[in-house]
Amino acid sequence: MTGSSFATRIGLLLTALTVLACTLVTALNYLKFERLLLIQHQRMFTTIGADLVDTFERGMNIGVRLADVPGAQSLLDRAFGRDVDLQRITVADAGGRVLFDTERVRIGDAAAPALLPAGTTRRLARFGGLDWIGMPVVNSFGQREGSLLLGYGRAGIADRLTAVALAMAGPGLTALAIGLPLAWLAIFLVARPTRALFAQLAGLLAGGGAPATEEAMLQGLREAIHRHGATLDDAERQLEAIAARAPERNA
């Protein structure tokens, strides 16, 4: 049979659909896992931050201002080593001026207003390529004395996500590589009777052989073609006979 087959179309359709479904499942799984890790990451850094805030608030209980909490800078530096994704810890006063910072050159700068917690509730933000948790530092009469800003990266998460993506992509592609050729084969096998039917029809219409089946439509068609052929043959014979007769007298 020349030209494309309807089976090709169905094969393409199924291929597209399978690839789409696999992509969708992969993407959904990936996003799900990413969210799981992001939540866990955030929880972890909140733990670190809350512990630091606790220490600062206790420090102020001694009766000093936030700026004078003893050993504050070394406290930040120590906490900084707790996780590799921790990128920066900043302590700012109530006006947003940086008092302590793991990047010491920033001390005295103004902290980004988008990171500072509003009132005494935490703020989560994404800023400058880092995730930030802004936690209020509250003094002994319930006022926000300053804020602790903790910025962390996603490198650790990215590694895990890449690993998960690769772990899904490998078997996924393998499954497609095995499944799709099998599907194509099966489609063409299943399509054979239908294609045979079309082939018989085409052959029949082209005036070829008799249909192999006793299917009513094919038989009817065959009979009609023969009948019409015969009718036309008959008419042609008659007309030729008429034409072949000698010319009439009056001609």
Binding site: N61, G63, N139, S140, F141, Q143
Partner: peptide, 13 residues
């Protein structure tokens, strides 16, 4: 105990 310093700051508030 209350630290005098903190009480002073509270009075400032």
């Amino acid at each position: 105990v209350s630290r005098y310093y903190s009480v002073g700051a509270f009075t400032g508030f």
